[in-house]
Design a protein around this nucleic acid. Structure first.
Lengths: 213, 213
DNA sequence: ACAAATATTAAACACTTGTTTAAAACAGAT
DNA sequence: ATCTGTTTTAAACAAGTGTTTAATATTTGT
C-alpha cells in the first residue's frame, strides 16, 4: 500500500522515497494547503531545498501524491467488480474490503473529498485514475444486471452513493461521533466493525428486495 | 439561517455583521487554515484591521463562526426528535429535512468534519452545542423505543451513523461523483432528490424489518 | 586517484501571513 | 464649534511562505 518504487536505489531508502512518504503522511493529515514544504522536509529528515530539487514544486509533489492516493482509494472497487463473482458477492466483498482498507487508512476519504471540493487543481492529478474506473467496465456490468431485472431499478450513480455512503462516512465522522456520543477510540472501533455487518445487510437487502432473509 | 443578531444596529448592516457573514462564507468555502484575514476583510468590503478590532483574532472569529454552524448543523436533528411524532415519522422527517437543509448548504458536512479532524481547537467552539444535543433527550428516547422491541436492536451510535451517512455523504461526495460518472451539476441535483426517497426507504426498511412493504 | 555528475546544504529572495500601532474620520452630546 | 468616545484606515511588524542560488559534499566512472 502506497509503495513508491525507488528510482535511484540505495541500500535503504533514497531521499526521493523518504520525501514521498513524508509528503504522503503530511498531506493526508493536514491537507495540501495547510502544510509547508519545510514541514514535509522535516518529516523526511532532509533539507527544504531537496523537496524542490526532486519534485520541482510543492504543487507538483502534491499532484503526484494525490494521484497515488486516488489509485488506492478506487483500486479495490475496480478489482472486485472486475472479478466474475455473482453480483451479491461482489457487493458484499466490496463493502468488507472497503471497511478493511479504511480501518487502516481512515483519513483518506476526508482527504480526497476535501481536496476535490476545495482544491480544483487536484482534479488534474485525478484524470488517469478516472480512466482506470471507466475502462474496468464496472458500471456497464451493473447496468447489464439491472436490465435482467436482477436488481432494484435505480441509477448507477445512486447505487454508488448507497455503497460508498455507508462505507466511508462512518470513518469520516469518527471525530464527530466520538464527541457527540462520548465514546473512546477503542469502543468506536468496535462500533465500526459491527457497522460493517449492518452496511452489508442493509445495502444488499435494499438492492435485492426479493431475496429471502 | 445563520442570522447573526446585530449589536450596534445601524440602518443597514453593521461592519461587525458584514465581517461575520463574510467570514462564514470564506471559512466554509476554504476552511479555517486555508484562508486569510485579508480575504475575509476583502469579502466584507472592509479593512483588515477591523477584523481584529471586532473579534480580537482570526481564531476567535473562527470559533464564533464554527459554533453557529454547528448549531444549524445539529438543530434539525434535535428539533425533530424532541417532537412527539411516532418514531418512523421522526426518522422520515429527519431525513427529509436533512436533505432540504443540505440542498441549501451542501458544503457544511465537509466543513464540519474536516475541521474536527484537522483543527483540534475547533472542538472548543463545539461544546455548547454538545449540551444542546444531550439535553434534548434524543438518544434516551431512542433507547426506550428499542427496549420495547419496536426497533431493530443496534447501538445508538450506529443508528446515528446509518442516518447521517445516507444523508450527508451524497452531498459531500458531489465533486467525486461528478467526475467519476461525468454528470453535470443539474443532473446530480436530480440524483440527490431521487436519493432522498431511497435513503428514507432503505433506512426505515432496515430499522423496522417487521413492517409490511 | 582524479574528474564529472549527482546529491545536499545553508543562505537568501520576494512575498504573504496574523497582528499591532498610531493617526485620521466620524458620531453624538454639550 | 468643541469635546468625547467610537469606528476606520494606512502603515508597519516580525514570523513564515514557496522557491532559487551558489557553494559544498558525495557518489560514480575511469
Amino acid at each position: 500500500m502506497f509503495n513508491f518504487a525507488p528510482r535511484n536505489a540505495k541500500m535503504n531508502q533514497s531521499a526521493e522515497e523518504k520525501i514521498k512518504h513524508a509528503a504522503l503522511r503530511v498531506f493526508i493529515q493536514k491537507g495540501s494547503a495547510n502544510c509547508t514544504s519545510r514541514e514535509i522536509a522535516r518529516e523526511a529528515g532532509m533539507n527544504v531545498a531537496l523537496v524542490n530539487y526532486y519534485f520541482r514544486s510543492k504543487s507538483k509533489l502534491f499532484a503526484l501524491i494525490f494521484e497515488s492516493v486516488m489509485q488506492d482509494f478506487l483500486k479495490s472497487m475496480v478489482q472486485v467488480f472486475s472479478s466474475d463473482l455473482p453480483i451479491r458477492e461482489k457487493i458484499r466483498i466490496l463493502i468488507e474490503r472497503e471497511f478493511e482498507f479504511l480501518g487502516q487508512h481512515p483519513e483518506i476519504p476526508n482527504f480526497v473529498l476535501n481536496e476535490l471540493a476545495r482544491n480544483p487543481e487536484a482534479i488534474d492529478g485525478f484524470i488517469p485514475v478516472l480512466n482506470m474506473v471507466n475502462e474496468s467496465g464496472v458500471f456497464d456490468e451493473a447496468r447489464k444486471l439491472q436490465e435482467r431485472g436482477d436488481m432494484r431499478q435505480m441509477d448507477i450513480v445512486q447505487i454508488t452513493l448507497l455503497i460508498m455512503s455507508n462505507c466511508q462516512y462512518p470513518f469520516m465522522a469518527q471525530p464527530l461521533m466520538k464527541v457527540i456520543h462520548g465514546v473512546s477510540n477503542e469502543t468506536y472501533k468496535e462500533h465500526l466493525t459491527a457497522h460493517k455487518t449492518h452496511a452489508v445487510n442493509m445495502v444488499l437487502g435494499y438492492l435485492f428486495p426479493n431475496d429471502q432473509l
